[in-house]
Amino acid sequence: MTEKDANTLLEQICNMIWNRPAGGKLEDKSQAGRKPLYASIKQIIGQVKQVIKENYRQKRNFTSAFSGLFHEVSVQLEKEKKFNTLLVSILDRLKEWVIVTEEETGEILYVNKLAKKRFYDPETGGIVCEKDCPFMARIQSCHGQEAEQRYEFRCFHDKIFQVKAYSLLWEDKKAVVHLITDITCQKETEAYLEVMAYKDELTGLNNRRNCLKTIDNYIKSGIPFSICMIDLDDLKQINDQDGHLHGDEYIKLVSEEIKKSACEEDFTCRYGGDEFVVLYKGCSQQTAAERLAAIDRNLASGDKKYPMSISYGVVYVETGTDVLPESVLKMADERMYAFKRERKQMKENGDGLI
């Protein structure tokens, strides 16, 4: 019961006692949680009706009884007022933004302190993004449902909000309470972790997990490609003699050369510590080998104090080839080690590079 209802009821009771027409009109919006209050009011009205039938002296005797009952009504109203104050206090301390809207009109009935900091203009006292704001329009168009509503909303400021909406009665009005959380940082972190799950941290190339998945997709989709297994020569020796910083530098220089050799549609990967895999889409085995030879020459001509070179093996996979990704990698790996052994043998014999 609102304060207006209480005053109207008191006026009606007094008019009934003095046989005058009842004034005002009760809003008559009862709630289950107010049964004690309405029981007291019903008792008052019942006694008033009985007194009206009696004489004036009984009306006077009724005054003391009426005072006690009215006191009970006042206590109930005070309890309700304290409950509403407690409710607002709790909402103001929530970590979520809270906006309460009238279900029928979308009028904003309540905004907690945290939401005011985000949505309110302290100078005007109005909502900053109320006009032409798709997010606020979405909130104000929400109609109550028995079940909880959950959704995510990306606004034009690239902010992502998670909203939970519930139907309730708010000061005797059908309303919807919206609990809003800014999950922009959470979504950005999830996207970053998802990317990093398939990326090598040192080089920025794709990692082993992504490599096997991509090879399988190429084969199943019937995409012709050349798969290249690449190994850095003497990386362990450089790590042992010059330190791991130089070893990491070597790895990154090779990755940069691999990126330069690849087209936008090609796939580049750091497969392991000193191993790389490249998928040249629609590229013949000979052309792929020529690209790798160019990478090898560019590394050998570098001005680093340690020598740099790569060994590699290439396998061409035609359209319609039915083979497992692991089998194709194994074939390319065997050819790479054959290349490495041949190069080592030629160096020992003084025949120069391949």
Score class of each variant (00 low, 15 high):
T321R: 07
G352I: 07
A65H: 02
G24T: 00
K220R: 11
H143C: 14
N298P: 00
E148K: 13
L26E: 09
E334P: 05
Y271V: 05
L292K: 04
V314M: 04
I223W: 04
M308R: 02
Y198Q: 10
L87V: 09
A300T: 10
H71V: 08
V315Q: 15
L169K: 06
R138C: 02
L205Q: 03
A115I: 10
I41L: 13
D231Q: 04
I13A: 10
W170S: 03
Q186C: 10
L91C: 05
M336K: 14
L94P: 02
E342H: 06
T287V: 07
Y280M: 14
S261E: 03
I45S: 01
K81L: 11
L9S: 03
T321A: 12
V176G: 12
S74Y: 11
N19E: 15
D216H: 05
A293M: 11
I45G: 13
L299M: 00
A288C: 05
L26C: 07
E171S: 04
Y38D: 13
L324N: 10
T8M: 05
R154W: 08
A22E: 07
G23M: 08
M16D: 09
M229L: 07
V277F: 03
V100Q: 05
M346T: 10
R343G: 06
D234P: 08
E11V: 15
C133D: 10
N298C: 12
D231L: 07
I230E: 02
K29L: 09
F66H: 01
I227Q: 13
K347G: 15
K347P: 06
